[in-house]
Amino acid sequence: MYSTKISALRVEERPREILANQGKEFLRSEELLAILIGSGLPSLSALGIAQSILSTIDFDLNRLGRFTASDFMQFRGIGSARASILIAALELGRRRAAYLVPEEVLRIKSSHDAFQVLYPKFMDLDHEEFWVVHLNRAARLLKVERISAGGIAGTVVDVKMIYKSAIAQHTSTLILAHNHPSGQKQASQADRDVTKKNSGSWKTI
């Protein structure tokens, strides 16, 4: 645990100096987080605060991406202003990931391609959302669209809204997807009911 002030560390050990002199790839996760935190407390450095945050989630950055401002503010040295900075930085990272779709995936040829497009939309959610991927006749990506957002146990799907959007986009093929925040991979009864209710309108693959 880094309990001393960052200024007490050797210059070459300070996160900002490492960033400036060696590059971002040489920084550990707690050092990147410490730069965002900025400064620490008399008895606990920014590095110490960062390490205490990450140690509670076993340094799992996916879990960190789901933190709310309240989650951050449970730690010593993190007030509302610093929590806002951390939330904003994580959101920028999530939005950047949403744009990192390889050029070849602009044509959906497999379920893996669809996963690459949709995963950034779902990865940090603590509630269910329903998304649609619109494709043209050549299976090229036209649009990725959120249809609805719900709670931790479900979300409402309005088939009419899906068709309305598909007509507007001149869509030939739709990929429908939603997440389970619990991590449960099996379809819920509500999922089965929606599929059965609309089985005459679309087919599942």
Rank of each mutant, 00 (worst) to 15 (best):
E12C: 08
R107T: 13
L47W: 04
A149V: 05
A97N: 11
V105R: 14
G38L: 05
L176R: 07
H127I: 00
R192P: 02
G65L: 10
R95Q: 13
L32D: 01
G200H: 05
A83P: 07
V157I: 11
L106M: 14
A8L: 09
A20N: 14
R192L: 15
G48E: 00
Y163H: 08
D158T: 10
I162E: 06
E145H: 13
F67P: 09
G65I: 05
V144S: 01
R14H: 01
K24H: 08
L36G: 03
T155Q: 02
P102W: 01
R76N: 13
E103H: 12
A187N: 10
R63V: 06
S3R: 12
L125E: 08
V132L: 01
I147E: 05
F67D: 06
D58Y: 11
F75Y: 15
N198H: 11
G151P: 00
V157Q: 00
S182C: 02
K196Q: 15
L36A: 12
L90F: 12
A97Q: 15
D193S: 07
E25M: 02
V101F: 01
K160H: 12
F75G: 02
T195C: 06
L135H: 09
G65T: 04
S7M: 02
P181D: 11
A50N: 05
R28K: 15
V105Q: 14
G79V: 08
L27N: 02
H127P: 00
I167C: 05
S199M: 12
I87V: 15
L118T: 02
K143A: 12
N198T: 06
L61Q: 03
Y99H: 07
A166S: 10
P42N: 02
R140H: 15
E145T: 12
A46W: 03
A97P: 00
N21G: 07
A153C: 10
P42L: 02
K24F: 12
F59T: 05
A81I: 15
R14F: 01
D193I: 14
R95M: 11
Y119S: 08
S29Y: 09
G40D: 04
Q169C: 09
A69S: 14
F59S: 01
G183E: 04
T56Y: 10
Q74N: 14
F130A: 10
L86C: 01
H178T: 00
G65F: 09
L100K: 07
A8W: 11
R140D: 14
V156E: 08
V194Y: 05
E25R: 07
S188V: 04
V157E: 01
I78L: 03
A46V: 09
E13M: 11
Q22M: 10
R63K: 14
M123K: 13
A34M: 08
Q169F: 13
S148V: 08
V194K: 02
A187R: 13
E103S: 11
